[in-house]
């Protein structure tokens, strides 16, 4: 089979595929092109698969070929073979991204060539490099138009792959303020403590609405994000959580069980040198400067 024949065959098969966007089977091809041998069919289909024209599926015991979306095909138009291979690898990785070493292994390209290809693709704005949050030096590549996955970007709490502790702190404080506004409802509520308790509880959705209305965040916060923040409040000992009968989690601001105990009211309780303090020597209670400051 000569080159021209092969190209002709490919065009034919592609035409059939274009007519049936839902996909075609081997049977469809043989009925459309009756003089095709099965050996020729297999080689041509394999070539087309290699070029990435088709996606292959199994449907009810027979194979179905479906034409790939045109956009991604067009994007690599005018690119050489290496670029196509690399692009396909990156495309497959989806929004999780792919590491440069995995591209190298998958494409069998030399390091220098690969960097050149990647640079080319980047300059064409086909792909982008994203820094991964859990490993700061690791860069992953993904298609330009994709939003990075939470595991890569870290979700709402990361800006340029840095954890935004100030942002979290502010949200933490605002959530607490919201809970505290209603916390007092339980105290001597004339309608009884159960109603009071219900009034002092806030669901995560309510908190989320409050935070969104405040407009302190330019990122859209999901209810799950707010729950993470509310959980930090629980771990701070400033709120307790409970579950409503319908399964939604509710939160309520609380006070500690006891006021600060005596141990932390004396300087020794917070003294960094407490384990070095002896009856004699350099650190003694008699000449302790912390204690002198506290007594004056």
């Amino acid at each position: 089979m000569s080159e021209s024949q092969e190209e002709e065959l490919k065009e034919k098969i592609l035409n059939i595929a274009r007519k049936n966007p839902k996909g075609i089977t081997d049977n469809d091809i043989t009925t459309a092109i009756p003089d095709l041998t099965s050996a020729e069919l297999v080689t041509t289909i394999n070539k087309l698969l290699q070029q990435g024209c088709f996606d292959i599926y199994k449907q009810g015991g027979s194979l179905v070929y479906r034409l790939k979306a045109q956009s991604s095909k067009q994007a690599v138009k005018g690119a050489d073979n290496e670029e196509k291979v690399v692009f396909n690898l990156i495309e497959e990785a989806g929004n999780k991204g792919i590491w440069i070493r995995d591209i190298r292994n998958g494409s069998n390209l030399a390091n220098t060539q690969l960097t050149k290809v990647l640079k080319n693709l980047e300059s064409k704005k086909l792909i982008k490099a994203v820094k991964c949050v859990n490993a700061s030096k690791k860069k992953v590549y993904m298609l330009y138009n994709l939003e990075p996955d939470r595991s890569v970007s870290g979700g709402a709490w990361y800006q340029d792959q840095d954890f935004e502790s100030e942002f979290v702190d502010i949200l933490n404080r605002q959530c607490l303020r919201f809970l505290q506004q209603r916390a007092d409802k339980i105290k001597n509520n004339p309608r009884g403590p159960i109603i009071g308790r219900t009034q002092s509880y806030a669901t995560a959705a309510e908190v989320q609405k409050y935070i969104t209305d405040l407009g302190i965040s330019n990122v859209k916060l999901e209810v799950e994000d707010v729950i993470t923040i509310l959980n930090t409040l629980v771990y701070d000992g400033k709120a307790e959580s409970s579950v409503y009968p319908d399964g939604s989690k509710v939160y309520r601001a609380i006070e500690t069980l006891i006021p600060p105990p005596g141990l932390v009211q004396v300087p020794c309780g917070v003294c960094p040198l407490i384990h070095k303090c002896c009856s004699s020597g350099l650190v003694t209670p008699q000449d302790c400067v912390y204690m002198a400051e506290w007594l004056d």
Partner: peptide, 29 residues
């Protein structure tokens, strides 16, 4: 037990800061 825990939490908070107290409570829960 609850009250002792409260004492310890206060102590952690004063000695190492509220962030440490958060970690302490997290581990406890």
């Amino acid at each position: 037990e609850q009250l002792v825990l409260s004492v310890i939490e206060h102590t952690v908070q004063e000695r190492l800061g509220s962030k440490a107290a958060r970690i302490f409570r997290l581990i406890r829960s």
